[in-house]
C-alpha cells in the first residue's frame, strides 16, 4: 500500500496509508463470473450496456420510502389493506411498484402477533420495496439467531415486546418476499397519509422495531 506525507496541523510529518480504492482488492471468483457474464451478454447482443446500467440504476434507486407508502396507504384505506394482505404483489403494483421476479406476502402485526423477516439461507429481501438490505440483515449472526431467539435479538435492536405477544418469524427461503405491515401507532388518528409515511422506517417493515408515533 502506498503512503503519503502531509502536514495537517501537527508539528511533525507522519505517513499514513491512503484510503483503499473500492476496487483495489483483486476480484473474487463470483465478481469475475458476474463481470464476464455481463460482458458476454453484451458482446452476443442479448442485452446492451445501457440496459445493464439501467437495471443496476433501477435497483439502486429503490428505497424504504416505497414500502412506507404502501404501509401508510394500508393504514388509511381499509379496502387497500385487505387487497394488500390478500395479494401483496398486485396491491403494490397499484402504487407503481413492480415485482417481476418474486411474489410479495404482507404479514400484519396485531396486538397479539409480531412478525419479523429473515432469510436464513442467504439474503432474500424485498428490494423493490425497501432498496438494498442493510449489512446486519445479511450477517450470519442475525440470520442464525433471529430464527431461534427472536425476542433476544429484538431486544438488542431496542425492541421489547410483551411476553404474551406471539412472535412469528418468516424465513424467506424461496420465491416469496415479505413485508411487515406494522400496527398504526396510537395517537396518529389525525395524521394524513403523507405524514404517516414519515413514521414508517425500513426496520419496522423488516420487523426488528416498531414505527415511531410522531
Amino acid at each position: 500500500m502506498s503512503e503519503h506525507t502531509h502536514d495537517h496541523g501537527h508539528d511533525h510529518d507522519h505517513p499514513h496509508p491512503n484510503q483503499p480504492d473500492i476496487d483495489s482488492e483483486p476480484m473474487g471468483y463470483y465478481q469475475l463470473m458476474g463481470s464476464a457474464l455481463g460482458e458476454l451478454l453484451i458482446e452476443k447482443g442479448v442485452i446492451t450496456a445501457d440496459e445493464l446500467r439501467a437495471a443496476i440504476e433501477n435497483v439502486d434507486s429503490r428505497s424504504p420510502e416505497g414500502g412506507a407508502k404502501v404501509v401508510a396507504k394500508a393504514w388509511t384505506d381499509p379496502e387497500y389493506k385487505a387487497r394488500l394482505l390478500e395479494n401483496g404483489t398486485a396491491a403494490v403494483d397499484e402504487l407503481g411498484i413492480d415485482m417481476p421476479a418474486t411474489h410479495l406476502v404482507v404479514v400484519e402485526n396485531t396486538d397479539k402477533v409480531h412478525n419479523v423477516i429473515v432469510c436464513t439461507l442467504c439474503s432474500c429481501y424485498p428490494r423493490m420495496l425497501l432498496g438494498l438490505p442493510p449489512d446486519w440483515y445479511k450477517a450470519h449472526a442475525y440470520r442464525s439467531r433471529v430464527v431461534r431467539e427472536p425476542r433476544a435479538v429484538l431486544k438488542e435492536f431496542g425492541t421489547e415486546l410483551a411476553d404474551d405477544v406471539e412472535i412469528r418469524v418468516h424465513d424467506s427461503t424461496a420465491d416469496m418476499r415479505y413485508l411487515v405491515l406494522p400496527r398504526r401507532p396510537d395517537g396518529t388518528e389525525g395524521m394524513s397519509e403523507e405524514e404517516l409515511v414519515e413514521l414508517v422506517s425500513r426496520d419496522c417493515m423488516i420487523g426488528v422495531t416498531l414505527p415511531r408515533s410522531s
Binding site: 411476553d163 412472535i167 424461496a174 416469496m176
Partner: peptide, 17 residues
C-alpha cells in the same frame, strides 16, 4: 423446532418449502 426454545411457547416460524 428447537429443543431448548426458551421464549413464548406459541411463537412460530413460517418457511417456504
Amino acid at each position: 423446532v428447537w429443543d431448548d426454545y426458551a421464549e413464548n411457547p406459541n411463537d412460530t416460524v413460517d418457511i417456504e418449502i
